[in-house]
């Protein structure tokens, strides 16, 4: 008994350093952010203002635009990417497929490049006289160049295309790993019963992959709520805040404009609350009938 409690004490030493670091660099700043969000002022002189920052938030057109943009990315991009990732993984899971390794590596490769690097590449590829417009003009898909970086609609489309390019292959790997555990005889039985490919996909594959869909949906949602590198480096949030995200607005409030740390902290709680709400919704939708 004495030995056992001695062992348990030693165990605390093993976890001690990690607990200190995570407390100091995650929980303590989080608490500070909460306190900050009830204070306001420029630079270092902050005074207690109660809920003023949160009231200001709901009357701040830029904050509301940033929240709206983030929602647009979330609602359009995450489902497209998850469906694409699942679709590619099903195609790659075909046992008779040749060049499987090549296709898998090629589609995964975007996950290797840094967010800043690919953002800068995309900015140039999609510039008005860039190669994407040249290509589309040559194919006569469009008759004049698209203003990808200048048009409010196309700028959002560009951000969505960029994130989808970067993350589809990454998510696909999770589906591929999960598909390898699916019993082939289930598909055999379905085929004998006359189920076509689409029915197999919707009635067997999707239900089987449900835990992975949940996992990728949650990680992608959290990632999108924090989106920063891409709009910062592709569009700078422009044109006229039309691609601005919440994270970018917090950054601007803290480090680009005259710093108002209290208000920035209040805006950051929008992301915290949205993260919790979306995770809960997704757990509800995906978790119960596992």
């Amino acid at each position: 008994m004495k030995l056992a409690s001695n062992k348990s004490l030693i165990g605390w030493f093993f976890i001690l350093i990690a607990v200190i670091f995570i407390t100091l660099f995650y929980f303590y700043p989080m608490l500070q952010a909460l306190i900050l969000s009830f204070r306001s002022g420029m630079g270092v002189n902050l005074e207690f203002v109660g809920l003023d920052n949160y009231i200001r938030l709901f009357n701040d057109p830029v904050a509301l635009t940033a929240i709206r943009n983030t929602f647009i990315y979330l609602i359009i991009q995450v489902p497209i990417m998850i469906l694409l990732a699942m679709f590619f993984s099903v195609l790659l899971n075909n046992p008779n497929l040749k060049f499987k390794g090549f296709f898998r590596t090629a589609i995964f490769l975007p996950a290797v490049i840094s967010l800043v690097a690919y953002s800068v590449i995309f900015k140039y590829l999609f510039s008005t006289d860039g190669i994407v417009n040249k290509f589309l003009l040559n194919l006569s898909v469009i008759s004049e160049p698209i203003e990808w970086l200048m048009d409010p609609f196309w700028a959002k489309v560009l951000i969505i295309i960029a994130i989808t390019w970067r993350w589809t292959g990454y998510n696909m790997i999770f589906y591929l790993a999960a598909l390898q555990n699916v019993d082939k005889s289930v598909y055999e039985a379905a085929r004998i019963d006359g189920a076509n490919s689409f029915q197999q996909f919707f009635y067997i594959t999707i239900p089987m992959l449900k835990p992975i869909i949940l996992f990728t949906a949650i990680t992608s949602t959290i990632g999108t709520l924090q989106l920063f590198d891409e709009p910062m480096n592709i569009t700078r949030g422009g044109p006229g805040n039309e691609t601005l995200t919440i994270s970018q607005y917090i950054y601007n409030l803290s480090f680009e404009y005259t710093p108002d740390f209290g208000y920035a902290a209040a805006v950051s709680f929008v992301i915290v609350i949205l993260t919790v709400i979306f995770s809960m919704i997704q757990f509800r939708l995906g978790g119960d009938r596992k």
Partner: peptide, 20 residues
């Protein structure tokens, strides 16, 4: 409790961390 820290977005941490 440690796992809860995975839910904290970096955007919420950057200002307090900068001050820290």
């Amino acid at each position: 409790i440690l796992l809860l820290s995975m839910m904290i977005p970096f955007a919420a941490l950057m200002v307090p961390l900068f001050r820290l």
